[in-house]
């Protein structure tokens, strides 16, 4: 019905957070005159980039799921956009679906992203320790 709304809200929040972190990161690297510090930071993938991956995952899913809902007539291009909004019983059903399916979608996508980031961090650490040992 409108399960994709929950990941959409998360996508907006993550996109804003990534943009703010990117700005902060750029300011920090500009002000850091220490060459060692700047090269150290550049070698690892900054967190705002990793957040960008999550935002891309969420936006991609949201766009394609929104199309699916459009296909099934669950969303319309005019106000109030969700067809369930016209019926009070359907609104209750929609909210339950958002709370169950929608929240689970967000949690699963975020968990998958977290696993990938954790594996990436481990690989980066191994590469760094391997380079130090040589």
């Amino acid at each position: 019905m409108a399960c994709f709304v929950v990941p959409a809200v998360e996508a907006v929040a993550v996109t804003i957070a990534a943009a703010v972190m990117k700005k902060k990161h750029k300011k920090q690297t500009e002000t850091a005159n220490n060459a060692e510090r700047s090269t150290e930071k550049e070698s690892a993938t900054p967190f705002y980039k990793k957040l960008g991956w999550l935002a891309s995952l969420l936006w991609g899913g949201v766009i394609l799921l929104a199309f699916e809902h459009l296909w099934h007539g669950e969303i319309v291009p005019w106000f109030p956009f969700l067809t369930a909004m016209s019926d009070p019983t359907a609104i209750r059903e929609m909210l339950i679906e958002m709370a169950t399916v929608g929240v689970t979608m967000s949690v699963v996508v975020t968990a998958a992203w977290a696993v990938v980031v954790a594996i990436g961090n481990r690989i980066a650490k191994r590469v760094a320790t391997g380079a130090n040992n040589k």
Binding site: C3, F4, P7, W53, S56, L57, L58, W59, G60, G61, V62, I63, L64, L65, V101, T104, M105, V108, V109, A112
Partner: peptide, 12 residues
């Protein structure tokens, strides 16, 4: 990212 995001959501 687009297809993996959608796949995970449809899996749920």
């Amino acid at each position: 990212f687009e297809f993996w995001g959608a796949s995970l959501m449809w899996l749920v």
